[in-house]
Design a protein around this nucleic acid. Structure first.
Length: 570
RNA sequence: GCACCCAUAGCUCAGCUGGAUAGAGCGCUGCCCUCCGAAGGCAGAGGUCUGAGGUUCGAAUCCUCAUGGGUGCGCCA
């Protein structure tokens, strides 16, 4: 059981070999010209050039060598293209092959890699915002796709639960709510209210800033009351974060945070200094990362003696590589941290921490509003993730009310599922490296290239399958490709390639765009091939149902890998 | 000043390792529901792929420069 493109690729390579041509030119790809071919190979052009032959003659030889191929007909075209057209019978049979495989012909990696995906990064006491949304959705999809492909991938939230921000909060609490130092409940709502004040004071009030610094140092030194306070703040935050992540269907195997690595910092930095990797400069402990000064040094410890996230991130790697099986660490983090990660990776390289482990920064761009500027609330503040989600759910709910296609009692639940699809597909269908515009109205549309459209496609097919079953009609042998079935079959065949590209480029967008392609082709097929209408033969009905079921199955699988579920009605 | 990223239709975006007429969605113009969900399908208008060089039989794709945006540049994370 293998894809058509792989089968044709193999046959083409055989033909090249038989003709005495280098098989590296035998690569087959989907055709640019569906009107002329399903697949194409351009290898005759460079061969013609190299051997000073007419590329058409080269192509003709290959055509002759493949003349009696059972699955495909071959033609040579103009300058020297090889055009492959899959035979109808082979195509019909192939749809059944895809449908019979729960993995839609996607292979499992021959050798599984152990991969850690770092895709959280929310801070204690601060609300999550759209930036965290990107990391969460892309990271979760990457992890799930890697697992589907047979890899051993885990996620770590890497909480921002340490550092000056904690000191600021402690100083603020000490000043405004001192009784909390002796215990007492702290809620996320409290923290949300306090953090902006503490942060603001830190900017305007010199005395407060000093207190915050002192508190940070004291916390790092392990002062008991501060530490207890910190633990309660962290617990309240984690509970809140988990609610948001739960809604998004995001799960982390590890809820580690920056605090986890603090106790290791003194030793680590001392070691790095003794080996000459780290050095004192202007009172700060740094690691130089370049000779030409193009990349700034990484600061491990500032001149006040406090450790920053430079040290923490190096220590994090040092800790992670304790797992000897680990091969890759993926950091799904905002592109603005690009320089920082270069510094950290270079530092770890110099320190000898990375060894054979590869660390990659999976950068993503900024989320903008419809004005093209970073996404903000109408008032200009940062949009809380919770609020953004609520807005999306409201928009979807309004649309469901308007359509009135399902009972009122079901709408609240369906609105959640559809809003999740809208947000996730809106995110995943974009190239992560670029900035993108988060347009609530556009994403919550049910028309066009949206998450809800993909769900709708599945729901629609399911409804038909159910209705057909009531009528005694079930999916059967695929006897004909059907009108529009060729495009659908070829699209279904491309699923393994989409998975492969998503993994190689670390871009789930390839899978998202593939899913959309399936939905388009499936809807086209649905529209053109009647099943329950009068005059449709039992054979055709069974064949068409099987084709649609195959499409639905793969689409559902792709959606599942993107964390999108499909309601039964919508 | 130095470094990195981006530039494709009115708007939002695809375009895989360079290949045959550059594709979607939204919006716009027309069609298609006595018939399985029209949240759909079909067709049309709309692009000197920012500009200029270069490599190549062939460039949206690779290289250089320019222009216009974005971002980051040792003691916040």
């Amino acid at each position: 059981m293998t894809t058509l493109i792989d089968q044709i690729n193999a046959a083409c390579a055989d033909a090249f070999a038989a003709c005495g041509f280098d098989t590296k030119f035998a690569a087959v790809r989907e055709s640019d010209r569906p009107d002329m071919a399903d697949f194409q190979c351009n290898g005759a052009l460079p061969i013609g050039k190299m051997q000073k032959q007419n590329p058409m003659d080269v192509a003709d030889k290959i055509v002759a060598a493949m003349a009696d191929n059972p699955i495909v007909t071959v033609e040579a075209a103009r300058p020297g293209f090889l055009n492959f057209r899959v035979r109808d019978s082979a195509l019909a049979h192939h749809i059944a092959t895809i449908a019979a495989d729960p993995r839609s012909l996607a292979v499992t990696a021959a050798t599984a890699s152990k991969i850690l995906v770092d895709y959280g990064g929310p801070n204690v006491a601060k609300d999550m915002h759209v930036g965290h949304l990107r990391a969460a959705i892309i990271g979760q999809a990457l992890k799930d796709i890697l697992r589907f492909a047979g890899h051993d991938a885990d996620g770590d939230v890497h909480l921002g639960d340490w550092g000056l921000q904690m000191g600021q909060l402690i100083a603020f609490i000490e000043a405004e709510h001192p009784h909390l130092l002796d215990g007492g409940e702290i809620t996320m709502e409290d923290l949300q209210a306090w953090y902006p004040q503490a942060s603001g004071l830190s900017k305007t009030d010199d005395a407060f800033r000093e207190k915050a610094r002192a508190a940070t140092m004291a916390l790092q030194a392990g002062q008991a009351d501060y530490f207890a306070l910190w633990e309660r703040m962290r617990a309240a935050s984690v509970a809140s974060l988990k609610r948001d992540y739960d809604w998004l269907g995001v799960q982390f195997e590890y809820w580690y945070g920056e605090s986890r690595y603090q106790s290791a910092l003194d030793t680590m930095v001392a070691d790095l200094q003794s080996t000459g990797v780290a050095e004192l400069d202007d009172g700060a402990m740094i690691i130089r990362t370049s000779d030409d000064g193009k990349l700034p040094p990484l600061i491990l410890r500032n001149s006040n003696g406090a450790y920053g996230y430079g040290a923490t991130d190096v220590a994090t790697i040092q800790d992670r590589i304790q797992d000897p099986a680990l091969q890759t660490i993926l950091y799904v983090v905002d592109a603005r941290q690009s320089t920082h990660f270069k510094q950290v990776f270079k530092s770890c390289e110099r320190a000898g921490y990375l060894g054979t482990v590869s660390a990659e920064h999976i950068a993503f761009g900024t989320v903008n509003g419809t004005d093209g500027k970073p996404f903000k609330t109408r008032e200009g503040g940062t949009m809380r993730l919770t609020d953004l989600i609520a807005m999306m759910v409201d928009a979807v709910r309004a649309r469901l009310d308007d359509a009135g296609s399902i009972p009122e009692t079901d709408r609240a639940a369906v609105a959640q599922t559809v809003a999740q699809a809208a947000i996730k597909f809106g995110e995943l269908s974009h190239d992560r490296e670029k900035n993108y515009v988060f347009d609530i109205d556009q994403f919550a549309q049910f028309e066009g290239k949206t998450g809800p459209y993909l769900q709708y496609t599945c729901v629609r097919i399911q409804t038909l399958l159910d209705a057909a079953a009531q009528d005694g009609k079930t999916p059967g042998t695929i006897t004909s490709v059907g009108d529009g079935g060729r495009a659908l079959a070829l699209a279904l065949d491309a699923f393994p390639a989409a998975i492969d590209k998503s993994i190689k480029a670390r871009k789930p967008s390839h899978l998202a765009n593939h899913a959309y392609r399936i939905a388009e082709a499936a809807n086209g097929f649905y529209q053109k091939n009647r099943v329950l209408s009068a005059g449709v033969s039992a054979e055709d009905a069974a064949s068409h149902l099987a084709t649609l079921a195959a499409a639905q199955r793969q689409l559902t699988l792709a959606l599942d890998l993107m964390g999108i579920s499909v309601p039964t009605k919508m």
